[in-house]
Design a protein around this nucleic acid. Sequence first.
RNA 1: GCCUUCAUAGCUCAAUGGAUAGAGCAUCUCACUCCUAACGAGACGAUCUUGGUUCGAUUCCAGGUGAAGGCACCA
Length: 558
Amino acid sequence: MEDRIRHAVQKSLEQLGATGVTFAVEWPADPAHGDFAVNAGFAASKVLGKNPRDIAEIIVPVLEKALGDDATCIEVAGAGFINITLSPAAISNLLTEAKGDTWGVGTAHAGERIMIEYSNPNPFKEMHIGHLMSTIIGEATSRLMESSGANVVRDTYGGDVGPHVAKAIWGLRDKGVAETPTTEDIGTAYAHGSRAYEESETAKKEIETLNAEIYAMLAKDPAKHDAEERSLHETWVRGREVSVTAYRQLWDRLGSHFDYTIFESDTTPIGMRIVQDEIKNNVFEESEGAVIYRGEKVGLHTLVFITSYGTPTYETKDIGLAFWKEEHAPTDKVFILTAMEQVGHFKIVIAALNEFAPQLASKMQHISHGLLRLASGKMSSREGNVITADGLIREVIERASEKNEDPLVAEQVALGAIKYMILRQAPGGDIIFDMEKSLSLEGDSGPYLQYALVRATSILSASQVPPAETTSFESEAPLLARLITRFPEIVARAEELRGPHILVTYLTQLAGEWNSFYATGKIIGSENEASTLALVQAFVTTMRNGLGILAIPVPEKM
RNA sequence: GCCUUCAUAGCUCAAUGGAUAGAGCAUCUCACUCCUAACGAGACGAUCUUGGUUCGAUUCCAGGUGAAGGCACCA
Protein backbone atom coordinates (compact mmCIF):
# COMPACT_ATOMS: atom_id res chain seq x y z
CA MET A 1 0.00 0.00 0.00
CA GLU A 2 2.76 2.39 0.97
CA ASP A 3 4.57 1.56 -2.25
CA ARG A 4 1.49 2.22 -4.33
CA ILE A 5 1.10 5.62 -2.74
CA ARG A 6 4.76 6.39 -3.21
CA HIS A 7 4.71 5.47 -6.87
CA ALA A 8 1.60 7.47 -7.61
CA VAL A 9 2.97 10.57 -5.92
CA GLN A 10 6.32 10.13 -7.61
CA LYS A 11 4.68 9.95 -11.01
CA SER A 12 2.53 12.93 -10.30
CA LEU A 13 5.52 14.99 -9.23
CA GLU A 14 7.42 14.01 -12.34
CA GLN A 15 4.55 15.16 -14.50
CA LEU A 16 4.72 18.48 -12.72
CA GLY A 17 8.41 18.64 -13.55
CA ALA A 18 9.75 17.93 -10.08
CA THR A 19 12.07 14.97 -10.47
CA GLY A 20 14.27 13.56 -7.77
CA VAL A 21 12.32 15.16 -4.97
CA THR A 22 12.40 13.09 -1.78
CA PHE A 23 9.20 13.01 0.19
CA ALA A 24 7.82 10.94 3.03
CA VAL A 25 4.87 8.60 3.18
CA GLU A 26 4.26 8.37 6.89
CA TRP A 27 1.75 7.49 9.52
CA PRO A 28 0.10 10.58 10.88
CA ALA A 29 0.69 11.12 14.57
CA ASP A 30 -2.99 11.66 15.02
CA PRO A 31 -5.04 8.70 13.74
CA ALA A 32 -7.89 11.07 12.96
CA HIS A 33 -5.75 12.25 10.06
CA GLY A 34 -6.03 8.91 8.38
CA ASP A 35 -3.76 5.97 7.63
CA PHE A 36 -1.09 7.67 5.58
CA ALA A 37 0.18 11.18 5.14
CA VAL A 38 2.34 12.49 2.33
CA ASN A 39 4.42 15.65 2.60
CA ALA A 40 5.21 15.89 -1.10
CA GLY A 41 3.70 19.37 -1.25
CA PHE A 42 6.40 20.76 1.03
CA ALA A 43 9.10 18.74 -0.59
CA ALA A 44 8.39 20.01 -4.10
CA SER A 45 7.38 23.55 -3.29
CA LYS A 46 10.86 24.96 -3.68
CA VAL A 47 11.65 23.23 -6.96
CA LEU A 48 8.29 24.17 -8.46
CA GLY A 49 8.05 27.58 -6.90
CA LYS A 50 4.51 26.94 -5.82
CA ASN A 51 2.97 26.78 -2.40
CA PRO A 52 2.65 23.35 -0.82
CA ARG A 53 -1.15 23.30 -0.67
CA ASP A 54 -1.50 23.98 -4.39
CA ILE A 55 0.86 21.14 -5.25
CA ALA A 56 -0.98 18.83 -2.90
CA GLU A 57 -4.27 19.72 -4.58
CA ILE A 58 -2.84 18.61 -7.91
CA ILE A 59 -1.59 15.31 -6.52
CA VAL A 60 -4.87 14.36 -4.82
CA PRO A 61 -6.77 13.34 -7.98
CA VAL A 62 -3.81 11.27 -9.14
CA LEU A 63 -3.83 9.41 -5.84
CA GLU A 64 -7.58 8.99 -5.99
CA LYS A 65 -7.23 7.32 -9.34
CA ALA A 66 -4.33 5.11 -8.22
CA LEU A 67 -5.96 3.90 -5.03
CA GLY A 68 -9.52 3.63 -6.29
CA ASP A 69 -11.83 1.94 -3.85
CA ASP A 70 -9.05 1.29 -1.37
CA ALA A 71 -9.20 4.84 -0.07
CA THR A 72 -12.31 6.56 1.19
CA CYS A 73 -10.83 9.94 1.75
CA ILE A 74 -7.86 11.74 0.27
CA GLU A 75 -7.58 15.38 1.23
CA VAL A 76 -5.21 18.24 1.71
CA ALA A 77 -4.78 19.25 5.31
CA GLY A 78 -2.72 21.57 7.45
CA ALA A 79 -0.12 23.55 5.57
CA GLY A 80 0.01 21.05 2.74
CA PHE A 81 -0.18 17.45 3.88
CA ILE A 82 -2.13 14.93 1.89
CA ASN A 83 -4.03 12.65 4.24
CA ILE A 84 -5.20 9.29 3.05
CA THR A 85 -7.79 7.21 4.83
CA LEU A 86 -8.09 3.62 3.70
CA SER A 87 -11.48 2.08 3.14
CA PRO A 88 -12.81 -0.50 5.63
CA ALA A 89 -12.64 -3.10 2.85
CA ALA A 90 -8.96 -2.37 2.24
CA ILE A 91 -8.16 -2.70 5.96
CA SER A 92 -10.18 -5.87 6.10
CA ASN A 93 -8.19 -7.22 3.20
CA LEU A 94 -4.84 -6.30 4.77
CA LEU A 95 -5.93 -8.02 7.95
CA THR A 96 -6.12 -11.40 6.25
CA GLU A 97 -2.31 -11.33 6.14
CA ALA A 98 -2.10 -11.36 9.92
CA LYS A 99 -1.91 -15.09 10.25
CA GLY A 100 0.68 -17.61 11.37
CA ASP A 101 4.19 -17.48 12.70
CA THR A 102 5.52 -15.71 9.66
CA TRP A 103 3.30 -12.64 10.08
CA GLY A 104 5.81 -9.85 10.47
CA VAL A 105 8.77 -11.63 8.94
CA GLY A 106 10.41 -9.68 6.13
CA THR A 107 13.11 -10.23 3.55
CA ALA A 108 15.47 -7.29 4.03
CA HIS A 109 18.38 -9.61 4.89
CA ALA A 110 17.18 -12.81 3.31
CA GLY A 111 19.98 -15.30 2.79
CA GLU A 112 22.51 -13.29 4.76
CA ARG A 113 24.58 -14.99 7.40
CA ILE A 114 25.11 -12.79 10.42
CA MET A 115 27.08 -13.50 13.55
CA ILE A 116 26.19 -11.66 16.69
CA GLU A 117 28.05 -11.72 19.97
CA TYR A 118 26.42 -10.72 23.22
CA SER A 119 25.96 -11.50 26.91
CA ASN A 120 29.71 -12.05 27.35
CA PRO A 121 29.92 -12.87 31.04
CA ASN A 122 33.36 -13.65 32.37
CA PRO A 123 33.89 -16.96 34.09
CA PHE A 124 35.08 -16.54 37.67
CA LYS A 125 32.63 -13.71 38.16
CA GLU A 126 28.91 -13.79 38.75
CA MET A 127 26.58 -12.56 36.05
CA HIS A 128 25.22 -9.22 37.18
CA ILE A 129 22.40 -7.10 35.87
CA GLY A 130 24.74 -5.56 33.29
CA HIS A 131 25.11 -8.94 31.60
CA LEU A 132 21.39 -9.42 31.93
CA MET A 133 20.92 -6.23 29.94
CA SER A 134 23.34 -7.31 27.24
CA THR A 135 21.69 -10.71 26.99
CA ILE A 136 18.19 -9.29 26.71
CA ILE A 137 19.09 -6.64 24.14
CA GLY A 138 21.24 -9.12 22.24
CA GLU A 139 18.51 -11.71 22.07
CA ALA A 140 15.90 -9.23 20.86
CA THR A 141 18.35 -7.86 18.29
CA SER A 142 19.13 -11.37 17.06
CA ARG A 143 15.48 -12.20 16.71
CA LEU A 144 14.84 -8.95 14.86
CA MET A 145 17.59 -9.91 12.44
CA GLU A 146 16.00 -13.33 12.00
CA SER A 147 12.72 -11.56 11.32
CA SER A 148 14.41 -9.85 8.40
CA GLY A 149 15.24 -13.21 6.87
CA ALA A 150 18.84 -13.46 8.07
CA ASN A 151 20.50 -16.62 9.23
CA VAL A 152 21.79 -15.60 12.65
CA VAL A 153 24.69 -17.28 14.43
CA ARG A 154 24.87 -16.39 18.11
CA ASP A 155 28.06 -16.42 20.09
CA THR A 156 29.12 -15.36 23.52
CA TYR A 157 32.67 -14.61 24.52
CA GLY A 158 34.04 -14.84 28.00
CA GLY A 159 37.29 -13.90 29.68
CA ASP A 160 38.59 -17.08 31.25
CA VAL A 161 42.13 -15.71 31.50
CA GLY A 162 43.43 -12.40 32.69
CA PRO A 163 43.79 -10.45 35.91
CA HIS A 164 40.24 -11.08 37.13
CA VAL A 165 40.81 -14.84 36.93
CA ALA A 166 44.09 -14.54 38.79
CA LYS A 167 42.33 -12.50 41.47
CA ALA A 168 39.58 -15.10 41.85
CA ILE A 169 41.96 -18.07 41.99
CA TRP A 170 44.27 -16.22 44.37
CA GLY A 171 41.21 -15.49 46.52
CA LEU A 172 40.09 -19.12 46.47
CA ARG A 173 43.52 -20.24 47.55
CA ASP A 174 43.89 -17.55 50.18
CA LYS A 175 40.54 -18.42 51.70
CA GLY A 176 41.31 -22.10 51.48
CA VAL A 177 38.08 -22.90 49.64
CA ALA A 178 37.46 -26.61 49.22
CA GLU A 179 37.78 -28.63 46.04
CA THR A 180 34.55 -27.69 44.36
CA PRO A 181 33.65 -24.04 44.76
CA THR A 182 30.11 -22.72 44.33
CA THR A 183 29.35 -19.63 42.27
CA GLU A 184 29.03 -17.69 45.52
CA ASP A 185 32.46 -18.92 46.65
CA ILE A 186 33.94 -17.68 43.42
CA GLY A 187 32.16 -14.35 43.74
CA THR A 188 33.51 -13.78 47.23
CA ALA A 189 36.94 -15.01 46.24
CA TYR A 190 37.05 -12.53 43.37
CA ALA A 191 35.99 -9.67 45.65
CA HIS A 192 38.58 -10.75 48.19
CA GLY A 193 41.29 -10.98 45.53
CA SER A 194 40.59 -7.59 43.99
CA ARG A 195 40.52 -5.94 47.40
CA ALA A 196 43.84 -7.52 48.29
CA TYR A 197 45.26 -6.46 44.92
CA GLU A 198 44.64 -2.84 45.78
CA GLU A 199 45.46 -2.94 49.46
CA SER A 200 48.52 -5.11 49.63
CA GLU A 201 51.72 -4.82 47.59
CA THR A 202 52.57 -8.44 48.31
CA ALA A 203 49.19 -9.67 47.17
CA LYS A 204 49.44 -7.53 44.07
CA LYS A 205 52.79 -9.10 43.18
CA GLU A 206 51.45 -12.58 43.84
CA ILE A 207 48.39 -12.01 41.70
CA GLU A 208 50.43 -10.63 38.82
CA THR A 209 52.73 -13.61 39.00
CA LEU A 210 49.78 -15.97 39.16
CA ASN A 211 48.27 -14.26 36.13
CA ALA A 212 51.44 -14.90 34.12
CA GLU A 213 51.57 -18.47 35.44
CA ILE A 214 48.05 -19.12 34.20
CA TYR A 215 48.93 -17.91 30.72
CA ALA A 216 52.10 -20.03 30.76
CA MET A 217 50.21 -23.06 32.00
CA LEU A 218 47.62 -22.71 29.25
CA ALA A 219 50.28 -22.28 26.60
CA LYS A 220 51.70 -25.67 27.47
CA ASP A 221 50.45 -29.07 26.44
CA PRO A 222 48.56 -30.41 29.53
CA ALA A 223 50.44 -33.69 29.16
CA LYS A 224 53.65 -31.84 29.95
CA HIS A 225 52.39 -30.04 33.07
CA ASP A 226 54.38 -30.43 36.26
CA ALA A 227 52.58 -31.04 39.57
CA GLU A 228 52.02 -27.37 40.31
CA GLU A 229 50.73 -26.63 36.84
CA ARG A 230 48.45 -29.62 36.99
CA SER A 231 46.91 -28.38 40.23
CA LEU A 232 46.45 -24.88 38.84
CA HIS A 233 44.92 -26.30 35.69
CA GLU A 234 42.42 -28.31 37.73
CA THR A 235 41.35 -25.33 39.81
CA TRP A 236 41.01 -23.27 36.68
CA VAL A 237 38.97 -25.87 34.76
CA ARG A 238 36.67 -26.49 37.72
CA GLY A 239 36.13 -22.82 38.42
CA ARG A 240 35.32 -22.09 34.80
CA GLU A 241 32.91 -25.01 34.65
CA VAL A 242 31.01 -23.84 37.72
CA SER A 243 30.55 -20.37 36.26
CA VAL A 244 29.57 -21.56 32.81
CA THR A 245 27.04 -24.04 34.14
CA ALA A 246 25.37 -21.22 36.05
CA TYR A 247 25.38 -19.06 32.91
CA ARG A 248 23.79 -21.78 30.83
CA GLN A 249 20.93 -22.07 33.28
CA LEU A 250 20.35 -18.37 33.16
CA TRP A 251 20.52 -18.15 29.36
CA ASP A 252 18.07 -20.98 29.15
CA ARG A 253 15.70 -19.14 31.41
CA LEU A 254 16.04 -16.00 29.30
CA GLY A 255 15.45 -17.87 26.04
CA SER A 256 18.98 -17.41 24.69
CA HIS A 257 20.91 -20.27 23.15
CA PHE A 258 24.38 -19.73 21.78
CA ASP A 259 25.81 -21.58 18.83
CA TYR A 260 29.32 -20.83 20.06
CA THR A 261 30.70 -20.22 23.52
CA ILE A 262 34.15 -18.81 22.94
CA PHE A 263 36.77 -18.17 25.60
CA GLU A 264 39.73 -15.88 25.71
CA SER A 265 41.93 -18.90 26.23
CA ASP A 266 40.85 -19.93 22.70
CA THR A 267 41.70 -16.61 21.14
CA THR A 268 44.84 -15.72 23.09
CA PRO A 269 47.32 -17.88 21.13
CA ILE A 270 45.97 -16.64 17.80
CA GLY A 271 46.01 -13.02 18.90
CA MET A 272 49.50 -13.24 20.38
CA ARG A 273 50.93 -14.79 17.25
CA ILE A 274 49.36 -12.24 14.96
CA VAL A 275 50.22 -9.18 17.02
CA GLN A 276 53.84 -10.30 17.34
CA ASP A 277 53.94 -11.02 13.61
CA GLU A 278 52.64 -7.60 12.73
CA ILE A 279 55.41 -5.84 14.67
CA LYS A 280 57.56 -6.62 11.63
CA ASN A 281 55.11 -4.79 9.40
CA ASN A 282 55.07 -1.79 11.73
CA VAL A 283 51.44 -2.19 12.64
CA PHE A 284 52.45 -2.58 16.28
CA GLU A 285 55.61 -1.43 17.97
CA GLU A 286 57.51 -2.12 21.15
CA SER A 287 57.68 0.54 23.81
CA GLU A 288 58.81 0.34 27.42
CA GLY A 289 58.71 -3.43 27.26
CA ALA A 290 55.13 -3.52 26.01
CA VAL A 291 53.70 -3.95 22.53
CA ILE A 292 51.50 -1.05 21.59
CA TYR A 293 49.39 0.26 18.75
CA ARG A 294 49.81 3.94 17.96
CA GLY A 295 46.21 4.90 17.45
CA GLU A 296 47.25 8.49 16.78
CA LYS A 297 48.00 7.54 13.18
CA VAL A 298 44.27 7.12 12.62
CA GLY A 299 43.08 9.85 14.96
CA LEU A 300 42.71 7.62 18.01
CA HIS A 301 45.02 7.02 20.92
CA THR A 302 47.75 4.59 21.90
CA LEU A 303 46.76 1.33 23.48
CA VAL A 304 48.76 -1.57 24.91
CA PHE A 305 48.23 -4.90 23.16
CA ILE A 306 50.83 -6.98 25.00
CA THR A 307 51.86 -5.93 28.48
CA SER A 308 55.44 -5.72 29.72
CA TYR A 309 54.71 -8.94 31.59
CA GLY A 310 54.27 -10.55 28.19
CA THR A 311 50.53 -11.10 28.72
CA PRO A 312 47.99 -10.07 26.11
CA THR A 313 45.35 -7.43 26.76
CA TYR A 314 41.74 -7.54 25.71
CA GLU A 315 42.67 -5.93 22.40
CA THR A 316 45.03 -8.71 21.36
CA LYS A 317 42.48 -11.33 22.34
CA ASP A 318 39.87 -9.54 20.22
CA ILE A 319 42.19 -9.65 17.24
CA GLY A 320 42.46 -13.39 17.86
CA LEU A 321 38.70 -13.60 18.19
CA ALA A 322 38.13 -12.07 14.78
CA PHE A 323 40.35 -14.74 13.22
CA TRP A 324 38.80 -17.49 15.34
CA LYS A 325 35.35 -16.60 14.07
CA GLU A 326 36.50 -16.47 10.46
CA GLU A 327 37.99 -19.92 10.78
CA HIS A 328 35.17 -21.65 12.69
CA ALA A 329 32.06 -19.83 11.54
CA PRO A 330 32.56 -17.55 8.57
CA THR A 331 29.69 -15.11 8.08
CA ASP A 332 28.84 -12.04 6.04
CA LYS A 333 28.71 -9.72 9.01
CA VAL A 334 29.98 -9.85 12.55
CA PHE A 335 28.25 -7.79 15.22
CA ILE A 336 29.57 -7.40 18.73
CA LEU A 337 27.23 -5.99 21.33
CA THR A 338 28.70 -4.53 24.49
CA ALA A 339 28.18 -1.62 26.82
CA MET A 340 29.06 1.89 25.68
CA GLU A 341 32.28 2.06 27.68
CA GLN A 342 34.00 -0.16 25.15
CA VAL A 343 33.46 1.93 22.02
CA GLY A 344 36.97 3.36 22.19
CA HIS A 345 38.55 -0.07 22.43
CA PHE A 346 36.65 -1.43 19.47
CA LYS A 347 37.54 1.57 17.34
CA ILE A 348 41.19 0.79 17.94
CA VAL A 349 40.85 -2.97 17.48
CA ILE A 350 39.05 -2.44 14.18
CA ALA A 351 41.57 0.18 13.07
CA ALA A 352 44.49 -2.13 13.85
CA LEU A 353 42.79 -5.08 12.20
CA ASN A 354 42.13 -2.97 9.16
CA GLU A 355 45.87 -2.57 8.60
CA PHE A 356 46.56 -6.24 8.02
CA ALA A 357 43.15 -7.93 7.61
CA PRO A 358 40.85 -5.36 6.02
CA GLN A 359 38.36 -8.01 4.95
CA LEU A 360 37.80 -8.94 8.61
CA ALA A 361 37.73 -5.35 9.79
CA SER A 362 35.14 -4.30 7.23
CA LYS A 363 32.55 -6.85 8.24
CA MET A 364 33.00 -6.33 11.95
CA GLN A 365 30.76 -3.84 13.65
CA HIS A 366 30.53 -2.88 17.27
CA ILE A 367 27.10 -1.98 18.60
CA SER A 368 26.70 -0.61 22.07
CA HIS A 369 24.12 -0.08 24.73
CA GLY A 370 24.01 2.03 27.86
CA LEU A 371 24.56 0.79 31.35
CA LEU A 372 22.10 -0.45 33.86
CA ARG A 373 23.01 1.79 36.76
CA LEU A 374 21.74 1.79 40.26
CA ALA A 375 20.01 4.87 41.58
CA SER A 376 22.31 4.52 44.55
CA GLY A 377 25.51 4.74 42.51
CA LYS A 378 27.85 2.60 40.49
CA MET A 379 27.92 -1.13 41.00
CA SER A 380 31.21 -2.59 42.04
CA SER A 381 32.17 -6.11 43.02
CA ARG A 382 34.53 -4.64 45.59
CA GLU A 383 31.87 -2.49 47.19
CA GLY A 384 29.67 -5.53 47.41
CA ASN A 385 26.67 -3.62 45.99
CA VAL A 386 26.41 -5.72 42.87
CA ILE A 387 22.96 -6.95 41.98
CA THR A 388 23.34 -10.34 40.37
CA ALA A 389 21.12 -11.40 37.50
CA ASP A 390 19.78 -14.28 39.55
CA GLY A 391 19.12 -12.05 42.53
CA LEU A 392 17.10 -9.61 40.47
CA ILE A 393 15.03 -12.30 38.82
CA ARG A 394 14.37 -13.96 42.16
CA GLU A 395 13.18 -10.72 43.68
CA VAL A 396 10.84 -9.87 40.82
CA ILE A 397 9.41 -13.37 40.82
CA GLU A 398 8.61 -12.90 44.45
CA ARG A 399 6.68 -9.75 43.65
CA ALA A 400 4.88 -11.37 40.75
CA SER A 401 3.94 -14.29 42.99
CA GLU A 402 1.66 -12.05 44.99
CA LYS A 403 -0.80 -12.23 42.12
CA ASN A 404 0.09 -15.59 40.63
CA GLU A 405 -0.09 -18.85 42.45
CA ASP A 406 1.36 -20.71 39.51
CA PRO A 407 5.16 -20.39 39.78
CA LEU A 408 5.57 -20.75 36.03
CA VAL A 409 3.30 -17.78 35.39
CA ALA A 410 5.01 -15.78 38.13
CA GLU A 411 8.33 -16.35 36.42
CA GLN A 412 6.92 -15.49 32.99
CA VAL A 413 5.47 -12.27 34.34
CA ALA A 414 8.68 -11.38 36.16
CA LEU A 415 10.82 -11.96 33.08
CA GLY A 416 8.34 -10.01 30.99
CA ALA A 417 8.61 -7.09 33.38
CA ILE A 418 12.41 -7.14 33.41
CA LYS A 419 12.74 -7.48 29.66
CA TYR A 420 10.23 -4.74 29.00
CA MET A 421 12.06 -2.37 31.33
CA ILE A 422 15.27 -2.92 29.41
CA LEU A 423 13.87 -3.03 25.89
CA ARG A 424 11.45 -0.14 26.16
CA GLN A 425 14.07 2.54 25.75
CA ALA A 426 16.37 3.31 22.88
CA PRO A 427 19.66 1.48 23.36
CA GLY A 428 22.41 3.95 24.08
CA GLY A 429 21.04 5.65 27.12
CA ASP A 430 21.78 4.39 30.58
CA ILE A 431 18.95 2.89 32.55
CA ILE A 432 18.78 4.22 36.06
CA PHE A 433 17.55 1.17 37.80
CA ASP A 434 15.28 1.42 40.76
CA MET A 435 13.59 -1.76 41.93
CA GLU A 436 10.39 0.03 42.90
CA LYS A 437 10.07 2.56 40.10
CA SER A 438 11.61 0.86 37.08
CA LEU A 439 10.02 -2.50 37.49
CA SER A 440 6.38 -1.88 37.03
CA LEU A 441 3.86 -4.63 36.75
CA GLU A 442 1.20 -2.07 35.79
CA GLY A 443 0.81 0.59 33.15
CA ASP A 444 3.45 0.50 30.41
CA SER A 445 5.02 -2.78 31.33
CA GLY A 446 5.67 -6.33 30.25
CA PRO A 447 2.70 -7.68 32.19
CA TYR A 448 0.47 -5.11 30.48
CA LEU A 449 1.29 -6.67 27.11
CA GLN A 450 1.00 -10.20 28.45
CA TYR A 451 -2.31 -9.43 30.12
CA ALA A 452 -3.79 -7.94 26.97
CA LEU A 453 -2.84 -11.10 25.09
CA VAL A 454 -4.21 -13.42 27.77
CA ARG A 455 -7.54 -11.62 27.77
CA ALA A 456 -7.78 -11.95 24.01
CA THR A 457 -6.88 -15.64 23.90
CA SER A 458 -9.39 -16.38 26.62
CA ILE A 459 -12.13 -14.92 24.43
CA LEU A 460 -11.08 -17.13 21.55
CA SER A 461 -11.22 -20.23 23.68
CA ALA A 462 -14.47 -19.25 25.40
CA SER A 463 -16.40 -18.52 22.22
CA GLN A 464 -18.49 -21.25 20.65
CA VAL A 465 -18.44 -19.58 17.27
CA PRO A 466 -15.64 -20.19 14.75
CA PRO A 467 -13.92 -16.96 13.70
CA ALA A 468 -14.67 -15.61 10.23
CA GLU A 469 -11.99 -15.55 7.55
CA THR A 470 -11.53 -11.84 8.13
CA THR A 471 -13.30 -8.96 9.81
CA SER A 472 -15.78 -6.97 7.81
CA PHE A 473 -16.26 -3.48 9.11
CA GLU A 474 -19.65 -1.85 8.84
CA SER A 475 -18.43 1.69 8.94
CA GLU A 476 -14.91 2.80 9.70
CA ALA A 477 -12.27 0.27 10.73
CA PRO A 478 -11.26 0.79 14.36
CA LEU A 479 -7.75 1.96 15.15
CA LEU A 480 -6.99 -1.50 16.53
CA ALA A 481 -7.41 -3.02 13.09
CA ARG A 482 -5.42 -0.29 11.40
CA LEU A 483 -2.57 -0.70 13.88
CA ILE A 484 -2.38 -4.43 13.31
CA THR A 485 -1.76 -3.92 9.60
CA ARG A 486 1.38 -1.89 10.39
CA PHE A 487 3.13 -4.70 12.22
CA PRO A 488 5.48 -5.94 9.45
CA GLU A 489 6.55 -2.39 8.72
CA ILE A 490 7.32 -1.81 12.40
CA VAL A 491 9.38 -4.97 12.68
CA ALA A 492 11.36 -3.98 9.59
CA ARG A 493 12.03 -0.53 10.95
CA ALA A 494 13.04 -1.83 14.38
CA GLU A 495 15.51 -4.16 12.70
CA GLU A 496 16.88 -1.53 10.38
CA LEU A 497 17.46 0.97 13.16
CA ARG A 498 18.50 -1.79 15.54
CA GLY A 499 15.99 -0.53 18.06
CA PRO A 500 13.88 -3.14 19.81
CA HIS A 501 12.18 -0.25 21.63
CA ILE A 502 10.42 0.67 18.39
CA LEU A 503 8.63 -2.65 18.55
CA VAL A 504 8.02 -2.27 22.28
CA THR A 505 6.41 1.13 21.81
CA TYR A 506 4.22 -0.22 19.05
CA LEU A 507 3.11 -3.27 21.03
CA THR A 508 2.27 -1.03 23.98
CA GLN A 509 0.10 1.13 21.80
CA LEU A 510 -1.47 -1.96 20.27
CA ALA A 511 -2.23 -3.44 23.68
CA GLY A 512 -3.77 -0.13 24.74
CA GLU A 513 -6.02 -0.07 21.69
CA TRP A 514 -7.01 -3.65 22.34
CA ASN A 515 -7.87 -2.92 25.96
CA SER A 516 -10.04 0.02 24.91
CA PHE A 517 -11.72 -2.11 22.31
CA TYR A 518 -12.27 -4.82 24.90
CA ALA A 519 -13.88 -2.37 27.28
CA THR A 520 -16.41 -1.02 24.79
CA GLY A 521 -18.63 -4.07 24.73
CA LYS A 522 -18.94 -7.79 24.88
CA ILE A 523 -17.72 -9.75 21.92
CA ILE A 524 -19.10 -13.15 22.81
CA GLY A 525 -22.78 -13.25 21.99
CA SER A 526 -22.62 -10.07 19.95
CA GLU A 527 -24.21 -9.75 16.55
CA ASN A 528 -20.90 -9.77 14.66
CA GLU A 529 -19.22 -12.34 16.83
CA ALA A 530 -17.55 -14.39 14.07
CA SER A 531 -16.34 -11.30 12.28
CA THR A 532 -15.00 -9.68 15.44
CA LEU A 533 -13.30 -12.89 16.48
CA ALA A 534 -11.24 -12.65 13.30
CA LEU A 535 -9.98 -9.29 14.52
CA VAL A 536 -9.25 -10.76 17.94
CA GLN A 537 -7.37 -13.55 16.23
CA ALA A 538 -5.33 -11.06 14.23
CA PHE A 539 -4.51 -9.17 17.41
CA VAL A 540 -3.45 -12.38 19.16
CA THR A 541 -1.19 -13.36 16.27
CA THR A 542 0.39 -9.93 16.13
CA MET A 543 0.98 -9.65 19.87
CA ARG A 544 2.25 -13.19 20.15
CA ASN A 545 4.69 -12.78 17.26
CA GLY A 546 5.78 -9.40 18.60
CA LEU A 547 6.47 -10.73 22.08
CA GLY A 548 8.28 -13.65 20.46
CA ILE A 549 10.69 -11.29 18.74
CA LEU A 550 11.39 -9.58 22.04
CA ALA A 551 11.74 -12.97 23.76
CA ILE A 552 9.09 -11.94 26.27
CA PRO A 553 7.30 -15.04 27.56
CA VAL A 554 3.65 -15.59 26.69
CA PRO A 555 1.68 -16.90 29.70
CA GLU A 556 -1.42 -19.03 29.22
CA LYS A 557 -3.26 -17.40 32.07
CA MET A 558 -2.69 -14.53 34.43
C1' G B 1 43.28 18.89 29.23
C1' C B 2 41.61 15.79 24.87
C1' C B 3 37.84 12.42 22.68
C1' U B 4 32.62 9.89 22.81
C1' U B 5 27.70 10.03 24.17
C1' C B 6 23.62 12.36 26.42
C1' A B 7 20.01 16.65 28.27
C1' U B 8 11.90 16.33 26.71
C1' A B 9 6.15 16.75 32.32
C1' G B 10 7.62 16.22 39.66
C1' C B 11 9.66 10.87 38.24
C1' U B 12 10.83 6.87 34.22
C1' C B 13 10.72 6.89 28.96
C1' A B 14 8.70 7.90 23.41
C1' A B 15 8.51 11.19 19.09
C1' U B 16 11.98 8.49 9.98
C1' G B 17 13.05 17.62 9.75
C1' G B 18 6.33 18.17 9.82
C1' A B 19 0.13 19.04 11.87
C1' U B 20 -2.31 20.22 18.82
C1' A B 21 5.47 17.06 21.37
C1' G B 22 3.00 11.09 22.89
C1' A B 23 2.80 7.21 27.09
C1' G B 24 3.27 5.25 32.09
C1' C B 25 4.06 6.46 37.35
C1' A B 26 2.56 10.19 40.96
C1' U B 27 -1.84 13.76 42.02
C1' C B 28 -7.24 14.65 41.18
C1' U B 29 -12.22 13.10 38.96
C1' C B 30 -15.34 9.00 36.82
C1' A B 31 -16.20 3.77 36.24
C1' C B 32 -16.52 -2.70 39.22
C1' U B 33 -23.95 -7.49 39.16
C1' C B 34 -20.99 -7.26 32.33
C1' C B 35 -15.91 -12.38 27.70
C1' U B 36 -10.03 -11.55 33.63
C1' A B 37 -9.97 -4.16 37.01
C1' A B 38 -2.36 -6.44 36.16
C1' C B 39 -8.21 -2.88 32.87
C1' G B 40 -11.01 1.48 30.88
C1' A B 41 -12.71 7.15 30.41
C1' G B 42 -11.09 12.12 31.80
C1' A B 43 -8.16 16.34 34.26
C1' C B 44 -3.32 18.39 35.57
C1' G B 45 1.63 18.72 33.71
C1' A B 46 7.45 19.29 29.52
C1' U B 47 11.49 20.32 24.67
C1' C B 48 18.69 22.98 29.51
C1' U B 49 20.57 27.96 27.30
C1' U B 50 22.18 31.43 23.13
C1' G B 51 22.69 31.80 18.09
C1' G B 52 22.54 29.61 12.92
C1' U B 53 20.49 26.57 8.60
C1' U B 54 15.20 25.60 6.88
C1' C B 55 8.68 27.00 4.27
C1' G B 56 8.98 24.28 9.01
C1' A B 57 13.87 22.33 14.36
C1' U B 58 12.83 18.27 20.31
C1' U B 59 15.40 16.47 15.81
C1' C B 60 20.63 19.28 11.78
C1' C B 61 25.16 22.92 12.79
C1' A B 62 28.14 26.18 16.31
C1' G B 63 28.99 28.26 21.32
C1' G B 64 27.53 27.91 26.62
C1' U B 65 25.91 25.05 30.99
C1' G B 66 25.18 20.28 33.25
C1' A B 67 25.71 14.67 33.39
C1' A B 68 27.85 9.77 32.05
C1' G B 69 31.91 7.12 29.79
C1' G B 70 36.85 6.64 27.65
C1' C B 71 42.10 8.48 27.34
C1' A B 72 48.83 2.88 27.07
C1' C B 73 50.23 -2.28 30.86
C1' C B 74 41.88 -4.29 33.35
C1' A B 75 37.77 -6.21 30.57
